[in-house]
Design a protein around this nucleic acid. Structure first.
Lengths: 230, 230
DNA sequence: CGTCCATTTGATCAGGGTCAAGACGAGTGG
DNA sequence: CCACTCGTCTTGACCCTGATCAAATGGACG
């Protein structure tokens, strides 16, 4: 295996402000790993033996309720930390992480978490900032679920995905990962049937284009208006 | 004003593990403050000039949407930190905090946040653990909103309140703060009408007793069954 | 005693979930 | 290369949960 190069990490938000030598030291303990599409990076309830950085691909973070219902907590993009159970004071993962496409991740043993956050305080600060950001995002989602209608939420979810994993095409912004109606339903707290009906209606109005596990946002502005007031 | 005594903080979760001398040093910079019922401790969007510890009372943390809808994010109990915008990497408060009853709080200037977390790493650890806990609670709430019916959510909310602010009485567990139907609705993403109907139905079955801004949980076990399965 | 606010209760109805069936398309094995 | 299968998506019909609209009741407090 090729030696890991510090340029992999330099410039990524979690390592903002770290000295190159510190990056090297952190990389020495990292293990690089390929995760094929649909395979788990880590699983809910399992012992959190490692934490991860996504280098390439997209990862779906999923929570399953005791009665088997699933909801998608978030999608992870390259450069983001995941599985940082230790930062939440946990010893098990609170959710599962599934590769939405073939992925490359770096993994560190969880034992190193406290050492890293103490020895490289910039890393600690960045990591806790991530937790803070996610808390705010999650709270925004609570508000959305409590106050907005389904079509608002679905429109908003598509815009976020387009922003996070969008690829310009001649048609508009393609959400560049396999995304089923079911996935969208699990992000927004509704059913695949309702999502399907919404998408076909929007397609007729030229707001989006969609196909099998594929959505393109054609008119972000009009969709955005749908997401908010209506 | 009486000098603040370190016994105020000793034993509270945020100060777990701190040396008495460090407690004293932190207290030197604290200002104690009475907040009358229904008055704000801090307000959403305002500059986060201070962070707080609730010494006595109960505080309602509320978010208001751009179109004026409110939702209750959580209730704060004595011994908890609040307004720790800095821990989230923010300079403004993400929500408002309203005294549910007459309260006593300690306030520190936000400028001291980074000094405290660096100089007293145990405090930092505890504070970030709080953020982690709240993230997990908020995520649990997302799942609940996305997957459970209204009666499940209302029952669960009452149980949490009974746990957090409950007082044993001859009737059962009294939720010991003013709690209107509207408040419960804002905690669970429904309307005061639906909450009212649920409570009267439950009262007929002897699960709860309720009056004006007052709820007593009579049969926690049966209510708990209602909260989960059905 | 009057006012204000919390609460109750009824009537209505629509958003969206559930149930059911079929169409479509991609990948697989013969 | 075709047939088959499986998973995704669509669409219709139905109905239920819970929101909305409206009005009345009842305490609490000045």
């Amino acid at each position: 295996m090729a030696r890991l190069d510090r340029s992999l990490l330099a410039g990524l938000p979690p390592f903002e402000g770290l000295a190159p030598a510190d990056l090297d030291r952190m990389l020495e303990h990292a293990r690089s790993q390929r995760v094929p599409k649909d395979q788990p990076v880590f699983e809910q309830e399992a012992q959190a033996h490692a934490f991860f950085l996504l280098l390439d691909g997209h990862v779906r973070v999923v929570k399953t309720t005791p009665d088997g219902q699933q909801i998608i907590v978030r999608y992870i993009s390259p450069g983001e930390l995941m599985g940082i159970a230790r930062a939440l004071g946990r010893t098990t993962y609170p959710a599962s992480a599934i590769a939405a496409v073939d992925c490359v991740v770096l993994a560190w043993p969880s034992d190193l978490w406290s050492e890293f956050t103490m020895r490289y305080p910039e890393f600690g600060t960045n990591a806790y900032k991530t937790v803070g950001t996610r808390l705010q995002e999650t709270q925004a989602r609570v508000i959305e679920l409590a106050t907005r209608q389904v079509h608002n939420r679905v429109a908003h979810a598509l815009l976020r995905l387009a922003d996070q994993a969008g690829k310009k095409t001649s048609d508009g912004i393609l959400i560049d990962l396999p995304l089923s109606r079911q996935d969208i339903a699990e992000m927004t707290g509704t059913t695949l049937h309702t999502v399907s009906r919404l998408l076909t209606a929007w397609e007729e109005q030229g707001l989006v284009k969609s196909g099998r596990q594929k959505v393109t946002v054609v008119e972000p502005d009009r969709l955005s208006r749908l997401a908010q007031g209506d």
